[in-house]
Simulated scan of single mutants.
Amino acid sequence: MQALLRKGIGLSIIIVSFLLGWQLWEYDLFKKRPLTVPEQGQRINIRPGTPFKLVTRSLADNGIIKKPYLLEWSARLQGKAAKIQAGEYQIAHGMLPGEFLDMLVAGKVVQYSFTLVEGWNVRQLLAALKQNPDISQTLMSPDAGQLMHELGLDKAHAEGWFFPDTYHFVRDTTDKALLQRAYATMQKQLDEQWQQRAPGLPYSSPYEALIMASIIEKETGVVEERQQIAGVFVRRLQKGMRLQTDPTVIYGIGETYDGNIRRKDLTTDTPYNTYTRGGLPPTPIAMPGLAAIHAALHPAQGDSLYFVASGGGAHVFSATLEQHNEAVIKYQLKGKRRAFSSHPEGKNNKGKP
């Protein structure tokens, strides 16, 4: 009887050893075999609070793995099952189970991006946000005047307060959260630049510098010219001259602007018409980038008070109205001479006859 019992125990040990060996061989093979996904990879979404066992079952249901218990064992043996983070993940073609687990533990979720372009106004920004399918739309009103209230920010006007940059975010990030990030970034950049500003500038606050930066942003796309443009406008303010800049007039026209500025537009008074009003406009007219902010706070030294477009986005700068008028004849009128206004403030500072 004892001999029979010993034989039974021995046979059981052999069977158990065989099964254990088989499982270890299968587990080792599983670790070396990539997950089954298309060549372009596959995305999965793990919702918060989902048990890892359900995650492995979902992977099996989608044909990504064949034996979910092996992945579950692997996670538990390594102490990773309780460390899996929720989110959207991209499983790359050729990814091994161990790499997959490491990705989930590290929380390397799929990142989307949204670029806030230098020179956009609030209307353009809100339209771009609305068209982005990866951003959760939560803003109640399309009215830019209500935007800061919706965001819980203590600013009366939204224009200019969102820093142009490329923002990376995860799926279901809200439009409000993204705008709050852009606002915080602008505050940081503006404060840092304000602390390092050149002496003697005609601004009473960082906000006035932001207004000037927005004008510079719209005046030129040539980075090297921005400080020169800033120098012209700063000297005009210091001399009590009107800025007389077209981008502010265009902003004042609003959505009815058709691409052309007419003489009546220059003489029709609005809060943004810097041909009819002195000083800075009441708010920024666009979202200025860092280069424009830096230029507004570090204008180039010199004596130029006028500039005219010379082609290719560049400008020619002049110290006197006479010099400027000659530049207008050369670059705007193709050499044809005509009478100019003798307006003491340089009615033709942008090259308009």
Results as ranks from 00 to 15, higher is better:
Ser205Ala: 10
Pro206Asp: 11
Pro206Met: 03
Tyr207Gln: 04
Ser214His: 04
Ile215Asp: 05
Ile215Thr: 07
Ile216Ser: 00
Ile216Trp: 04
Ile216Pro: 01
Glu217Gly: 09
Glu219Cys: 00
Gly221Asp: 10
Val223His: 12
Glu224Trp: 14
Arg226Gly: 01
Gln227Thr: 12
Gln228Thr: 13
Gly231Ile: 01
Val232Gln: 02
Val232Leu: 10
Phe233Leu: 15
Phe233Ile: 04
Val234Pro: 08
Val234Cys: 09
Arg235Tyr: 13
Arg235Trp: 05
Arg235Cys: 14
Arg236Cys: 01
Arg236Trp: 10
Arg236His: 09
Arg236Gln: 05
Arg236Pro: 00
Leu237Phe: 13
Gln238Cys: 08
Gln238Thr: 06
Lys239Ser: 03
Gly240Asp: 14
Gly240Val: 12
Arg242Pro: 11
Gln244Asp: 07
Thr245Met: 09
Pro247Ala: 10
Pro247Trp: 08
Pro247Ser: 10
Pro247Arg: 02
Pro247Met: 09
Thr248Gly: 09
Thr248Met: 03
Val249Gln: 03
Ile250Thr: 06
Ile250Pro: 04
Tyr251Trp: 11
Ile253Phe: 06
Ile253Lys: 12
Ile253Trp: 00
Ile253His: 02
Gly254Asp: 10
Thr256Ile: 11
Tyr257Thr: 05
Tyr257Val: 09
Tyr257Met: 07
Asp258Pro: 00
Gly259Asp: 10
Asn260Ile: 15
Ile261Asp: 10
Ile261Pro: 04
Arg262Gly: 12
Arg263Gln: 13
Arg263Cys: 13
Arg263Asp: 13
Leu266Asn: 07
Leu266Tyr: 14
Leu266Lys: 02
Leu266Gln: 13
Thr268Ala: 14
Asp269His: 05
Asp269Leu: 05
Thr270Asn: 06
Pro271Arg: 13
Tyr272Lys: 07
Tyr272Ile: 11
Asn273Trp: 04
Asn273Phe: 12
Thr274Gly: 03
Thr274Val: 06
Tyr275Gln: 11
Tyr275Thr: 04
Tyr275Val: 11
Thr276Gly: 03
Thr276Phe: 02
Arg277Leu: 06
Gly278Asn: 08
Gly278Glu: 10
Gly279Ser: 08
Leu280His: 07
Pro281Cys: 11
Thr283Arg: 00
Ala286Pro: 09
Met287Glu: 11
Ala291Leu: 14
Ile293Gln: 12
His294Leu: 05
Ala295Gln: 02
Ala296Trp: 04
Leu297Lys: 11
Leu297Ala: 06
His298Trp: 07
Pro299Glu: 01
Ala300Lys: 15
Gln301Ala: 15
Gly302Thr: 08
Gly302Leu: 06
Asp303Tyr: 02
Ser304Thr: 14
Ser304Cys: 13
Phe307Asp: 00
Ala309Trp: 01
Gly311Val: 05
Gly312Leu: 13
Gly313Gln: 08
Ala314His: 15
Ala314Met: 13
Val316Thr: 15
Val316Cys: 02
Ser318Arg: 10
Ala319Pro: 02
Thr320Gln: 11
Leu321Lys: 01
Glu322Leu: 12
His324Leu: 07
Asn325Ser: 09
Glu326Met: 11
Ala327Gly: 05
